[in-house]
Design a binder for these strands. Structure first.
Length: 738
DNA sequence: CGCCGATCGCTC
DNA sequence: AGCGATCGGCGC
């Protein structure tokens, strides 16, 4: 950093959290600078947080490493305030720059993901308390005696505690303050999160787990970057294994971040952490209060908080001395941020480890194709747990060929699956019927005129939700009541539901097993986290006989009594245009069938399919994981898609169909046909309508050697600016970083 | 002739 | 991104 120190003042570069890539220059005033503790710093250093004037307002910013480029003394403004105690480390600053450069975002927007409000920079407020001060009051009462006995020993206590312990009203305590017997005082704020103990409760590990744990301990002790893919089947005890890595980092005095998809951040997970380390970790997710998050932010910056368990955004916390990141369920799509700065927190975690020199553990029962390939190529070390813990065997997976075993007309459960559920019920065990589709029916049409209900602002069919008595668009959330007559031809009672959703499966199950306890688990029928937890506990305790669920049930919850998992439509999703369609189907179905017999005996998984020969379905049925990855890698290689190429989706959206199309054609012409750049233009990426806007994705695929970001940046700056309400957004998909 | 609304462009 | 500056609608 070249900081200009003229004879009169110091000029520094400050990155501000606004929509710009460059840092701005500010003058450090000569006089004593305004700080929260009154101390006057002589010089500012990179990483310090400051408050600066910006346009009409003042914002927080960070002194950055850039050379001071703007030296127009007349237009320079003064730094208003410097905050102490929180300095962003050099590695972390490099990380911010790296993300911006890679995701084609402005550095200011990345910094915005890091900084919070001013409260996170100030020391926590001391707590108001009361302590014994003066003589016993002249007028003594029973209640006052009780208060004094509570205060015996002279320790200061919070007023609410005094009231509770002495069983008197608050006004009695106030009276004693007035009489001078008690006086107000301030206690330092207690630590938000207690220190986890590395050896609080050492676990009982299998031989296989112990070998894996040892690898993690060594990687942590080596204190340098390593990518570790912890690939363990469902029920293999991955969590216990990576907890050993966490314990080792604690022994080395390092901070640890455990990232989980938001939905997996349940009380059950935190309980397991507490059982292992004796205390709860810091919890970082959208449900936490602003106050708590500010305290966590400051706590990790000062180093007071050792371990944080958090969702995606926890990656941007300014840890003082991070020594390990664990990304649990690394394949999960929830790690990808789709708005503003588009990034995948799993990949950025690897980058953070690489820049700062510590190991990063990616854990999953179904690793992403990218991570699997990185392990194959030797960029990550693969730590494999092929067996379940405690000698439990993997579920027995079988296909039901629906062409040979069709369900009754208008029904969706094949005779084979119904029989399997019957057997499971008779054995007193739980079944899960899985269908990744909310609502009653995915398509509603009029049997008289053939009218189909379509979303007015998206190019999708409306899904009937019979419990809510509404037609819902799953893309934009538009909903309307189910009309009594067809809006096109006016015919009454002419609407028919086509295809199944979970509600329809629940209806069918209720008619087949009327006396059984059936629970339906679908995100639109669950109101809030609390209800979800209640329902999950109900299932865990074995009170439900049959569970019918969507994606919600595939996400790592434990159901001890679950012995049969029936997949209603294994082919669902395979036909989607998404380049990761096959991978998603494989991961979801492997995870959901992995729920069967996890704790007790031999579980079963049954996959209903009309395409049993499809490589993804066949690999699932045969338990041939390697076969799946081989197939998927071949497909990706041919299309030059991740992990073999870098893929950028240029997302165009416009209110005007013609504007979107013509600008798209312009872009396709502009992309250079060199370095094996491949463009999927408007012809191949059809125009769709989303929330009333015409949009398409222009996919640009390049091999790894080609540096896409600089080219895209240049191109966007040179090409004619989109007119009118045309919006261009860039979504960069990952390759490997190390 | 005047006031509110889309579009433009800057932030040290 | 946000926020002020700037030009255009038509209301009386």
């Amino acid at each position: 950093m070249r900081i200009i120190v003229s004879s009169t003042c110091q000029i520094v570069s400050v990155l501000v959290p606004v929509y710009v890539d460059s840092s701005y220059s500010y003058r450090v005033p000569n006089g004593p600078l305004d700080t929260e503790d009154g101390a006057a710093p002589s010089k500012l250093v990179a990483g310090q947080v400051v408050k600066v004037p910006l346009g009409p307002r003042s914002v927080l910013g960070v002194v950055w490493d850039d050379d001071v480029a703007f030296t127009d003394n007349n237009r320079l403004k003064d730094i208003e305030h410097v905050y102490h105690g929180t300095v962003l480390s050099a590695n972390f600053r490099k990380f911010v720059d790296w993300i911006a450069q890679y995701t084609l975002a402005q550095r200011g927007m990345v910094l915005r993901m890091v900084l919070r409000g001013e409260e996170s920079l100030l020391p926590p407020k001391p707590i108001k308390a009361l302590r014994l001060a003066g003589p016993v009051p002249a007028r003594m009462t029973k209640a006052r005696e009780q208060v004094l006995s509570v205060m015996e020993g002279g320790l200061a206590q919070v007023k609410a505690d005094i009231v509770e312990r002495s069983g008197v009203s608050a006004s009695v305590v106030d009276g004693l303050v007035k009489a001078g017997t008690l006086e107000p005082c301030f206690l330092p704020a207690p630590a938000l999160v207690a220190t986890p103990q590395a050896d609080f409760a050492a676990p009982r590990l299998s031989e296989q787990q112990e070998v894996a744990a040892q690898q993690l301990r060594q990687a942590v002790a080596a204190d340098c970057f390593a990518g570790l893919l912890l690939d363990g089947v469902t029920g293999s005890g991955k969590t216990e294994v990576y907890f050993e890595g966490v314990a080792e980092a604690l022994r080395h005095g390092k901070q640890i971040l455990i990232m989980v998809p938001e939905i997996a951040l349940t009380g059950a997970f935190l309980d397991r952490f507490e059982a292992r380390f004796g205390v709860r970790p810091g919890e970082w997710h959208s449900g936490q209060s602003q106050r708590y998050k500010n305290l966590i932010w400051r706590g990790v910056a000062t180093g007071e908080i050792q371990v944080v368990v958090g969702a995606r955004s926890s990656l941007m916390l300014p840890f003082r001395d991070l020594g390990l990141i664990v990304v649990d369920e690394e394949h999960d799509g929830a790690y990808k941020q789709e708005d503003r700065v588009i990034y995948n927190a799993r990949d950025m975690a690897v980058v953070r480890g690489h820049l700062s020199g510590f190991p990063v553990v990616l854990a999953s029962a179904t690793p992403s194709v990218e991570s699997h390939n990185n392990a194959l190529q030797g960029r990550y070390s693969r730590i494999h747990l092929p067996d379940r813990f405690g000698g439990q065997s993997m579920p027995d997976i079988a296909l039901i060929d629906m062409r040979a075993n069709p369900p009754e007309k208008g029904h969706w459960l094949s005779p084979v699956l119904i029989e399997a559920v019957n057997e499971t019920l008779e054995a007193g065990q739980q079944s899960l019927l899985f269908l990744n589709r909310r609502g009653y029916a995915p398509l509603t049409l009029c049997r008289t005129c053939g009218h189909r209900f379509q979303c007015p602002s998206c190019s999708t069919w409306l899904v009937e939700h019979r419990f809510r008595k509404q037609l819902v668009c799953h893309h934009c959330g538009h909903c309307e009541p189910v009309p009594p007559a067809c809006p096109a031809c006016g015919q009454e009672d002419s609407l028919v539901a086509c295809g199944p959703g979970v509600e329809r499966i629940a209806e069918e199950a209720a008619s087949l097993w009327p006396d059984r306890h059936i629970v339906i688990l679908s995100s639109d029928l669950i109101h809030g986290v609390q209800q979800l937890r209640t329902e999950l506990e109900l299932i865990s305790s074995g009170k439900a006989d049959i569970v019918i669920g969507t994606q919600l049930v595939a996400k790592g919850h434990n159901f001890p009594a679950m012995m049969l998992v029936g997949v209603i439509d294994a082919d669902l999703g395979l036909a989607h245009g998404d380049l990761r369609a096959g991978e998603k189907v494989f991961q979801t179905l492997a995870q959901v069938t992995g729920r069967a017999g996890r704790h007790t005996g031999q579980g079963r998984g049954l996959l209903q399919s009309y395409a049993p020969d499809h490589p993804v379905i066949a690999a699932l049925a045969n338990g041939d994981r390697e076969g799946f990855y081989t197939y998927e890698l071949e497909q990706r290689h041919r299309a030059m898609m991740p992990p073999f190429g870098r893929l950028a989706a240029i997302i165009l959206s416009a209110e005007d169909r013609e504007a979107a199309l013509s600008y798209g054609r312009l872009m396709v012409r502009a992309v250079p046909r060199e370095n094996d750049v491949r463009v999927l233009g408007p012809a191949e990426a059809p125009l769709s309508v989303l929330r009333g806007r015409y949009r398409f994705r222009l996919l640009v695929a390049t091999p790894r050697s080609f540096s896409l970001s600089p080219w895209l940046r240049l191109w966007l700056s040179q090409c004619p600016k989109p007119k009118g309400s045309l919006r261009v957004q860039i979504d960069v998909d990952p390759v490997s970083f190390v």
